[in-house]
Lab assay of single mutants.
Amino acid sequence: DVEPGKFYKGVVTRIEKYGAFINLNEQVRGLLRPRDMISLRAENLNVGDEIIVQAIDVRPEKREIDFKYIP
Rank of each mutant, 00 (worst) to 15 (best):
F21P: 00
G30D: 02
F7T: 05
I56S: 05
V53M: 06
R29T: 13
P4N: 08
Q27M: 11
K62G: 06
R29I: 14
E26R: 13
I56C: 08
D1H: 14
E26D: 14
A42L: 15
A55W: 04
V53F: 03
E3R: 14
V58M: 05
P60K: 11
D1Q: 13
I22H: 00
P60M: 09
E16K: 07
R59S: 05
V53S: 00
L32N: 03
G48W: 04
A42C: 13
I52P: 01
R59N: 07
Y8Q: 00
L40S: 07
L45M: 06
D66E: 08
I56D: 01
K17S: 12
G5Q: 04
L40C: 09
G10S: 01
R29E: 09
A42R: 12
D66N: 09
K9T: 08
A55S: 02
I65Y: 09
I70R: 06
D36M: 07
R14D: 02
P60L: 09
G30K: 03
K6S: 06
I56L: 12
D36H: 12
D57C: 14
V28G: 04
I38E: 11
D36P: 04
P60Y: 10
K6Y: 07
L31A: 02
K9H: 09
Q27I: 11
S39G: 15
R59T: 04
V2E: 02
D1A: 14
Q27V: 13
G30I: 11
D36I: 08
K17Q: 11
P4Y: 07
N23F: 09
N23R: 12
K9N: 05
V2K: 02
Y18A: 06
S39R: 11
I15K: 06
L31K: 05
R63G: 15
K17P: 13
G19R: 07
V11F: 08
P60F: 09
Y18Q: 06
Y18S: 05
V2S: 03
I65N: 04
G10L: 05
V58W: 08
V12P: 00
R33V: 08
R33K: 09
R29H: 10
Y18G: 06
V53L: 07
D57E: 14
G5E: 03
R41T: 11
I15W: 03
F67I: 04
E16P: 01
D36F: 09
E16I: 07
N44V: 10
E3Q: 14
F67W: 09
L45T: 01
E43D: 13
K62R: 12
A55I: 15
Y8R: 00
Y69I: 05
I51W: 00
G10H: 01
M37K: 02
I70N: 08
L31I: 10
I15R: 02
K68Q: 08
Y69H: 06
E50V: 15
D49Y: 07
V53E: 00
L32M: 05
I38M: 12
P60A: 10
I52R: 06
I65A: 05
L31S: 04
D49K: 05
I51Y: 01
G5M: 08
G5H: 04
Y69P: 03
V12M: 01
G48P: 00
I51A: 00
V47S: 01
G10K: 01
F21S: 02
P71L: 08
P71R: 12
G48L: 03
R63E: 10
G30S: 15
M37E: 04
F7K: 04
L31T: 06
K6F: 07
N44H: 14
Q27R: 14
V47Q: 01
E3F: 12
I51F: 03
E43A: 12
D57L: 12
A42I: 15
A20P: 02
R59H: 05
V2W: 05
I65V: 10
F7S: 07
A55P: 02
Q27P: 03
E26I: 10
D49W: 07
I56M: 11
F7L: 08
P34Y: 15
E3P: 08
D57Q: 14
G48K: 01
V12D: 00
I56A: 06
V12W: 01
P71K: 11
K68R: 15
F7V: 06
D49G: 02
N44D: 15
F7A: 03
E50S: 13
E16A: 12
S39I: 10
P71D: 11
Y8P: 00
R63C: 14
G10T: 00
F7P: 02
G30H: 03
E26C: 13
V28T: 11
V12Q: 00
I52W: 15
N46P: 00
R29Y: 14
R59D: 06
G19I: 08
K68M: 10
R41D: 10
I52T: 10
N25K: 06
R14E: 04
N25M: 06
I51V: 08
V28P: 02
L24R: 00
E61H: 12
I38C: 13
E43M: 13
N25H: 07
D1E: 13
R35Y: 08
N25R: 05
R63N: 15
N44R: 12
R63P: 06
L31H: 04
P34V: 15
L31C: 09
V28C: 09
R41C: 13
K6I: 06
G19F: 08
E3W: 10
D57Y: 13
I70A: 10
I65C: 10
G10Q: 00
I65E: 04
Y69A: 03
F7D: 01
G30N: 02
D66I: 15
R63I: 07
E43C: 13
G10F: 05
M37P: 03
I22M: 01
L45F: 06
A20H: 04
K62T: 11
G10R: 00
G19Q: 06
E16Y: 11
V11E: 03
L32V: 05
F7Y: 11
L24D: 01
I70D: 12
V47N: 01
V58I: 09
K6T: 06
T13W: 06
I52N: 02
I38K: 11
N44M: 14
R14T: 04
S39E: 13
A20G: 01
V2F: 09
E43N: 12
N46L: 10
V47W: 03
I22F: 07
Y69F: 11
R29S: 13
